[in-house]
Amino acid sequence: MDEETHPPEQAAGHGAVCARCGTVAEGDTAPLTWLCSVEDGRRLLFCESCARLHIRAVESRLDSVWW
């Protein structure tokens, strides 16, 4: 694989942060109900609410900028 991926954004001292709404996950890692997407070589996490709201775009494999 030629692309370099980066770890998901982390809030200071907190778990993962939703790339869409900014919700912070409790614990060290994102919950299993969160969505992970790789866009332009960056790994983005989306909370359950954002993923459910934009499920058709997710299934169509549209980048999050199109949501």
Rank of each mutant, 00 (worst) to 15 (best):
L44M: 06
S37H: 03
D28F: 07
R20P: 00
T23M: 04
P31I: 08
G15P: 06
L35T: 09
L45Q: 09
R52I: 12
P31A: 08
C18Y: 08
C36Y: 06
R20C: 12
R20M: 14
P31G: 04
A19I: 12
L32I: 10
A25C: 07
R42E: 06
H14V: 03
V24L: 05
R43V: 09
A16H: 05
S49L: 10
A19R: 14
R20K: 15
L53S: 13
R20L: 15
C47P: 00
R43T: 15
L45Y: 11
L44N: 09
R43K: 12
V38K: 12
S37F: 00
C50T: 06
T23S: 04
L53G: 12
A30V: 02
L44Y: 12
A30N: 05
L45H: 11
L44S: 07
L32T: 13
A25T: 06
S49W: 13
P31S: 06
T23V: 04
V38Q: 03
L53Y: 11
C21V: 05
D40P: 00
A51T: 14
P31Y: 00
L32V: 12
V38S: 01
E39S: 05
V38R: 12
V24R: 07
A19K: 12
A30G: 03
C21N: 10
C18L: 09
R52F: 04
F46R: 02
W34C: 10
R20W: 14
A30Y: 00
A30L: 05
L35K: 14
D28R: 12
R43P: 00
G15Y: 01
L32W: 03
I55D: 15
D28V: 01
A16T: 10
C36V: 04
R42S: 02
S37M: 08
C18M: 08
L35I: 04
T29L: 10
A19T: 13
R52G: 11
R56S: 15
G27Q: 06
R20H: 14
R43H: 03
R52K: 15
T29V: 11
H54P: 00
R42D: 08
G41M: 06
W34S: 09
G41L: 07
E39K: 01
S49N: 13
I55P: 07
